[in-house]
Nucleic acid binder design. Sequence first.
DNA 1: TTGAAATAGCACCCTGAGGGTACTATATTC
DNA 2: GAATATAGTACCCTCAGGGTGCTATTTCAA
Lengths: 166, 166
Amino acid sequence: MLSLTRKTDYALIALCHMAAQPNRVCTAREIAERHGLPQSLLMNVLKSLSQSDLVESTRGAKGGYRLGKGPTEITLSAIIEAVEGPVKFVQCATHKEGDDPSCDIMETCPIRRPVQVIQHRLEAFLAGIVLADLAERTSSDSCVNLSISGNPQPPTGGTGQHQAAN
Amino acid sequence: MLSLTRKTDYALIALCHMAAQPNRVCTAREIAERHGLPQSLLMNVLKSLSQSDLVESTRGAKGGYRLGKGPTEITLSAIIEAVEGPVKFVQCATHKEGDDPSCDIMETCPIRRPVQVIQHRLEAFLAGIVLADLAERTSSDSCVNLSISGNPQPPTGGTGQHQAAN
DNA sequence: TTGAAATAGCACCCTGAGGGTACTATATTC
DNA sequence: GAATATAGTACCCTCAGGGTGCTATTTCAA
């Protein structure tokens, strides 16, 4: 369905929670109770984030989690990758030479190249969104900030405006 | 995993195949054999595409499929939607007032708004890629063209502007 | 030193979507 | 009427998503 999993949802919520309180450590329980998430699952997610250094964890009493980087350094693609694994728009997109082919028509596939280009553009898209963008609108309730993006700006029209990638 | 399903892969292959031969009808068997796809599954996919008017079908002997629109009118988002259903970056993204909430923290969810903005941008991204972009690079092997459509252009705007490093 | 609080690491389970098959009905051509 | 092709269903199997539970480890504080 081309959708994120719920784990990523939880990750985003937890990260926003931490971003809003940069000067203290937050426990999994606190975050779970505050936002009504299942605590055990949230802990799994926080573990993943910790292993990817997106959050720092402190064990023991008075322990908890805090952001491991600044909110402008944590990209959406890093979050997704930490929780769900690498984004694969199509299975063959991240295929390396010599790998066991995930798809048995690799050699003759007529759409492989163009689809890989789309993959790169999607990665760039996700890498361009950072936690600060999300957290910002979370605290202030204004609707405005993200919405430069807000008007979806139909990209269909022109061939050839600027491109960010490649 | 934020990935397309194999059905969409098949749809893209079939559509590219048809785009390359605009003046004749192609049978499911022909496409399946040509590209090594399972015929029965490909037929399912073609049925979906037909119901969404992305392809025209002709029944009976000498029947088959052909594109239902020009290759510049068939967007990637339309293809995905025809085969997989609506793109939902997150479950709640397409939620309408009064629906049964797909997520029981709808009301208090701190990231709902920003995430919906991302969803809109993703939709615009996918709507900006058309079949012609794929089919083009299929026949000619040049690598350049696709960069025109969906320019990723991070939605940050207010906050830092980050360039996708690729 | 001991207990409580917190994360770390497994192991396991259940459900549903992805992915695939099979069969029948219908339309068209020759 | 036979052959060819799509249309429509109904069904099945596998595996990732999503969730639970238990144990180990670390840290603080009484």
